[in-house]
Design a protein around this nucleic acid. Structure first.
Lengths: 338, 338
DNA sequence: CTGAAAGCGCTTACAG
DNA sequence: CTGAAAGCGCTTACAG
């Protein structure tokens, strides 16, 4: 493996000049730069990352922390982070964080990445951001991090999220426009901030249309398929059942759909069903789900760019971004019956 | 940040002795070891990974290469790799490999990880293992790698896969046991070896039962939901349609299901439908899919353990593992009609 | 069982 | 615009 010395010798310059070319520093004569670049190419040279890290004190790597969000969320977000990191010459280290064991393993593994100088900063995906002591520790140690769809939105720490409230409001407006007046809503796990945000969006649209909010039309789920089916059973078997059910994620909407099939309720003729997240699942059930798309890739990319700015020493101030969602209209929704 | 010198001073030993304790080398007096360990704890010491890498010439990291398999496959496999790597003190670097652009970006990014000394070896997930020139380059450079469910199973290079043939054979036997005699089969993308393996399993079970293989019962898909629906349309609208359709992955089986619903074919009363992979999707469609479970986590973990042995200089010989799958029986299959 | 010396391949100040 | 020296924090051989 060629080193910086080999390149320097071949180009007839000092290693410092080679270093300047590698790091794209100014003040290198164009002809010199070209000679160095040529030598690097001829030798197949690539800088030794560990040596760079040791000498510079920077890892040029970011940690991607996750607990266990949906597979799809994780992968899409990870690709966004990798894209942003790669473009800036940063590596991405994936770190699982066990939220349940709280500080035993979770904390250790993350702070260890810092202690061992393996990463310069972190991206936290939900719900990994609930490990508050870790975040406090990072903050105290001045290790930058950006959170994706975090639970706490009060602190000055930067975060990027989809605008859940607006998305739910849009969907509810759409169902109202189809003539639905009794619209059921299935809530997600209360611990996640998206749950209440989506409920608020639903309520806002109802209020806007002059429709009284009816608690009896709200089912309580936990974002799982089964909880969606359970909530739907309750909603459908009431005195005056809703003509539409808006489940606040796709998994629960699929559960609603399965229950409707079992009870022989025609979708969307007798019951419209809508979801949230635009997961692959939403397009692969029958009928295909009308849902809300979250720009996960863009969210992750933006978060990474903010993190990179922080790593470059920039004082970014308050960076709280709420990215717009969009409606994906498919076959599971239709005009209100009668 | 404390260094090895700080620990050495506090423990009253040389840095070499501290190094011995860090690396768990023998020949350290128990009392000395304890004093060093105590000093490390008191100082909150963690070795600087970059310094270790530079000095030792080893990265203690493995690269996880992926193209774009299903999200779920990717995540499950990644967790298996991280688990195995972490246990051995290795970091995991996730590297996307663009199979389509072939050697422009794909090759570059992978060989660069090696050139920059960022990783010691690789795990290739399908279909990233199709970048044959990269594999050849790695082999020439003596960089160990293990492939997951690779296309090429002839070379001596180690790999780990699920036993697709056995899984498909088991499923077909199960359908036969339910009384089905005309069983349709939807093939996946021909480029993936799993496609032909699964077809072979189907054929083997038919032969075993003394049933002639009928090419007219084989639909040609590409593992996508849409291709499953298309293939099902052809199969269902023939003169004597099958009483069961075995789609060789869950996405296609969901497509078969959607088409059956559209054509008002009752599942499983009139048509049994089976899938393969046991993805989350399979449990969230209606009726829930009978499918074949692949032990992805175990596959990834085993692959990582083999890679680690290679990285430790062991000559592992031929390591070609075919892990058993198991049947997951749910609601989409039932006795043959009549 | 323990240690002093050299060196891994870079970057950081500092000179010129 | 270019370079010589020092040092980042470890491990590797080699002595004792």
């Amino acid at each position: 493996m060629p080193t910086i010395h080999d390149v320097a010798e071949r180009a007839g310059v000092s290693i410092k000049t080679v270093s300047r070319v590698i790091n794209q520093e100014p003040y290198v004569q164009e002809r010199t730069r070209e000679r160095v670049l040529l030598a690097m190419r001829e030798l197949g040279y690539a800088a030794n990352v560990s040596a760079q890290r040791l000498a510079s004190g920077r890892a040029n790597a970011i940690g991607f922390v996750f607990h266990n969000p949906s597979w799809q969320y994780l992968s899409t977000a990870l690709q966004g982070v990798i894209e942003g990191a790669c473009a800036a010459g940063y590596e991405t280290l994936v770190q699982h964080c066990d939220v349940d064991i709280a500080d035993v393993h979770g904390v250790r593994s993350i702070t260890e990445l810092v202690a061992r100088r393996s990463v310069d900063g972190f991206i936290f995906t939900p719900p990994a951001d609930v490990v508050v002591p870790v975040l406090a520790e990072l903050q105290a140690a001045q290790i930058p991090f950006v959170r994706l769809t975090p639970r706490d939105r009060v602190s000055r720490q930067p975060y990027v999220t989809a605008n859940d409230r607006q998305g739910a409001c849009d969907m509810t407006r759409y169902l109202l426009a189809l003539g639905h007046r009794r619209i059921g809503f299935v809530m997600g796990a209360p611990i996640q901030v998206a749950s209440s945000e989506r409920l608020e969006g639903y309520r806002a649209a109802l209020a806007e249309a002059g429709i009284r909010f009816d608690p009896a039309l709200v089912g309580h789920g936990d974002f799982s398929f089964e909880s969606g089916a359970r909530a739907a059973r309750v909603l459908i078997q009431t005195q005056s059942p809703p003509t539409a059910i808006f489940a606040s994620n796709d998994d629960m909407a699929a559960g609603v759909l399965a229950l409707a099939h079992r009870l022989q309720v025609a979708v969307p003729a007798d019951l419209s069903v809508a979801g949230f997240d635009n997961t692959p699942l939403s397009g692969q059930v029958w009928p295909a789900l009308t849902t809300v798309n979250q720009p996960i890739h863009e969210i992750a990319l933006l978060a990474t760019r903010i993190l990179l700015r922080m790593l470059h020493g920039e004082d970014v101030g308050i960076e709280h971004h709420h990215l717009a969602t969009d409606l994906v209209i498919r076959a599971s929704t239709g005009p209100a019956p009668r």
